[in-house]
Structure formats: C-alpha cells, structure tokens
Design a protein around this nucleic acid. Structure first.
Length: 410
RNA sequence: CUGGGUGUGGCGCAGUUGGUAGCGCGCGACUUUUGGGAAGUCGAGGCCGCUGGUUCAAGUCCAGUCACCCAGACCA
C-alpha cells in the first residue's frame, strides 16, 4: 500500500473522546474511525488486521473440521420467541427494526436460535452428526454503555462456532478440544502469555462455562487468579463452594482486571429442545441433540492486542496480525528509485511511505505510530554499502542488511 | 438506567458583568529546508450540538432535547 494513495491520514492528537490506548492509538494511526459511541469503521489498515486475525482463527478451526458459513443478520422473531429471548424484558440489548409491511425483525446479538432452526432442515439421522459450523459475523447489541474504544461496541465482529452432538460426552470432548484450540489462537495473535481460560458462570445446564480473559488494566471484568496453579475465575462465580471445587484457598488468589476475548458454553439441550431439533438414532428412536457454542469477539480482540502491544511512540503489532510486515521509507533520489522498484515487485509486503515533501522525522514518527514490525530505510547512506537499514519496531534496534539478501527473503 | 462532566473551524482548547468569535496544531499556495514531527510570507475555513424562550442584543441567561465522556449498575 502506498501512503500517498490512501485517503487515510494519521493524526497528531486523538480526539479527547478516546480515553483508552486502543481507541486513541488506533484512531491516530488511521486504523479505525468512530461514527458514534460503540460504532466504528475499520479503515484499510484496520481491516487488514481484522482479516489477519480472522485467518488465524479460520486456520485453527478448519484444522479440526469446522465448516464456515455466513448467516443472516436480520432475525425472524419466531425461533427467538420459542426460547423466550425476543422480548425486551428477557433480553434488553436487542436492536429491532421492521418490515415495510409492519412485521418486526431483530438484528442478531448472537445466533443460537437461527443456527438451531437452520439445522432442522438438514439434520435427521445420527449419521448427520456431529456438526460444527462457524461464521464471522457482525453482531448488534444495544449496550447501555459502550466504552473503551473497540473493546465494548454496539456493532462488532464476532466469530461464533456452534457444535451439535449425539451425547453429552461427545460435547464434553469437543468442548475440551476447543479450549485447546482457543489457547493456540490467542497465542498466535500475541496475547497468549496473559490470556487465561477462566471459570465463569455456566447457566443452568453446566456448572461452569469458560471465558478467555486477558489480564489488562482497562478490562471490565474482575478475575481472581493464581499463576502457579494456572487457575483463574471470574468474580461473578467467586464463592467458598467454587473455591473448594477448584481446590484453591482465598489467600492464594489475587484480584485483577481483565478483558474477555472469548467465551465457550455447553448449552446441552437448552436450545435444541425448545426449537425441536432432534435426530433418529440407530434404533430409530427420536433423541435429543447436545449443543455447544464458542465465541471470540474478533474486533474486541483487535482492540485488546492493540491495548497490550504499545509503547510511548505508538502501536507495536505482533507480526502475525500486522497489516504489513515492512514500513518502507526512502531518502533521496536514488533511495526513492530503489524503494519504488522494491515496492513494485512486492506490493503486499510493504506499507510504502512515498508521500512527497514530508520531513523524514515525520515519516519516522508515523512509522512508530503505525507500528509495523520492521521499518526499512533506503538512502544514499545505505546504498553506499548496497544495503537497506532494517529497524525492529519492538526494540528499536537497527542494522544494515545487504539489499540482495533482503530481496531474496521477501 | 443512576450519578457526575462536556458539546465553540478538521483536531486540541480559550471566550470576563450578555454587545455579533479567538489561539495553537492541522489544511492550501509560494520560497528556503530535508536521517527524528522545520522556518518564513500570504490565505481558506465557524448557523458556537439542536429547538424554543427572555432581551434592543444570546456562544454567554432560562427551558427542553440530542450527542459524547467518566464512575456505577447491566452484560442471557
């Protein structure tokens, strides 16, 4: 991407409305733009980060045979009425709209009902199970208080996976498998060391669900954790009974704030029964289907990664999710010529700051702010040694690399 | 939703006892600069969130309303 051709500009100061690092830095660096409270646009760089995160999740889920689909956002009230989740009294975060003919519609806050309803058309026999399907989809939740940049939005991107099984044991196995996969995903996007599976309330059908909590000052949950035993539990389930269950004593736990980046539930038959999703077993009797759901807030995850990976100069993206690997800057006529050639050969690898008439300091400052893993400078100085200068964003260390060797590795 | 705070050029802010709006940055043109956010000259840009009221006169006072921020509550 050539910066001269992008409509996006970096900002020296973020709007005072953004009080968190993720909100302020992502805005200043041109990744996101706020429309309203909790409603954001993802600009070209921000979209690339989202896509990188999505691809990591996709790779991991596809490895274990999950199928991706894309369901509708507009919701028919009927299935939701069967589980008593369409009324504003029961679920107070609905955005609702209507057909021109007057019928009421909802904008999906989650997808348990429609996905269960969908499968009624396809699941008949034990031979059709298990099923694991997921999507990346925009969800709408009318939060009373959106806040913290893109950590708590009213419109956000979510990965939601649903699994359907013939037995509770099979659901348990699958749930445990997802627990592992999630940890791989969070590791790959660069927050593995501070993200923990966390005991949280499991609703009526299972004692616990698991949240994936990233320990973070701006997080809105309080969790208790014990690093040695690798135990983390949400404040909402903190009780003598639960501590006993988990085998920890109160004095072994430390309280801290955390941001929830994922949540997995064993739903059992909570949705399949009321919606009438059943299957015929080998003996031709009708049987219940056991369901699980597994979410990752993708746009929130981007915010959490941004919140964690920063320094006083700006963002410091992990290479796995960075919008580009290299931030390319040329100095002088010859440097510009070589940089252009390099860019034309590998346009996907570089964010090329080819803006005219900008002082070099400004370009460096923007490179730091935008936070790509490596900054490449090509100038008369480096070309005198047939080299480029490569600087790691994470530690600021620079070295010269022979131009040919650098090109070879692209 | 409760409590507190804030809405004034693109961004950050100032605006006194009511008298017709200003600063910094940014933006445009030109000149000189060019390895860490340059300097000069000239210039553009504002229904002071919105609606109503008081007044000869409202950014300023009053009422209503919308939006935004913070804390809390909520988060299936």
């Amino acid at each position: 991407m050539k910066m001269s051709q992008s409509f996006v500009k970096t900002l020296r100061q973020a709007s005072g409305e953004e009080t968190t690092k993720n909100g302020a830095l992502l805005t200043r660096a041109g990744y996101i733009h706020k429309e309203m409270a909790g409603i954001y646009d993802f600009l070209p760089l921000g979209l690339k980060v989202l896509e990188n995160i999505k691809n990591i999740i996709r790779e991991e889920l596809n490895k274990i045979g999950c199928e991706e689909l894309l369901m509708s956002t507009l919701q028919n009230p009927e299935p939701w009425e069967k589980t008593n989740r369409f009324s504003n009294q029961q679920v107070d975060i609905w955005f609702k709209t209507e057909l021109s003919s007057g019928g009421e519609l909802g904008l999906a806050p989650t997808h348990e009902e429609p996905v269960t309803e969908l499968l009624k058309s396809y699941v008949k026999s034990y031979k059709d199970l298990p099923i694991h399907i997921y999507q990346f989809q925009t969800k709408f939740r009318n939060e009373k208080r959106a806040k913290s940049g893109i950590l708590r939005s009213r419109e956000f991107l979510m990965k939601d996976l649903y699994s359907f099984h013939t037995t509770p044991e099979e659901l348990d196995d699958y749930y445990n498998q997802i627990m592992q996969i999630y940890q791989t995903i969070f590791k790959r996007v660069g927050i593995g060391d501070i993200t923990y599976p966390t005991f949280a309330s499991g609703g009526i059908f299972s004692k616990y669900s698991h949240e994936f909590q990233t320990l973070l000052p701006v997080g809105e949950d309080t969790v208790y954790y014990n690093e040695d035993k690798s135990i983390v539990l949400n404040k909402e389930v903190y009780s003598p009974e639960v501590l006993n269950d988990l085998g920890v004593k109160p004095e072994e736990l430390q309280a801290t704030t955390a941001a929830e980046v994922g949540n997995i539930f064993k739903l059992q038959t909570k949705f399949t029964n009321p919606l009438g999703l059943k299957y015929s077993a080998e003996d031709n009797t009708e049987k219940e289907i056991y369901m699980g759901c597994y979410g990752i807030g993708v746009s929130r995850l981007m915010g959490v990664i941004a919140e964690v990976h920063t320094d006083d100069k700006g963002l410091v993206w992990p290479e796995s999710v960075a919008p580009f690997k290299y931030h390319l800057i040329a100095i002088g006529d010859e440097g510009t010529k070589i940089a252009n050639e390099l860019y034309e050969k590998h346009p996907d690898q570089f964010l090329f700051d080819n803006r005219d008439n900008l002082r070099i300091g400004e370009k460096f400052a923007d490179a730091d702010l935008i936070g790509l893993p490596y900054r490449i400078v090509i100038s008369d100085k480096t070309l005198a040694e047939n080299s480029v200068e490569i600087t790691e964003r994470s530690n600021g260390k620079s070295k010269l690399l022979p131009l040919k060797a650098f090109q070879k590795n692209l």
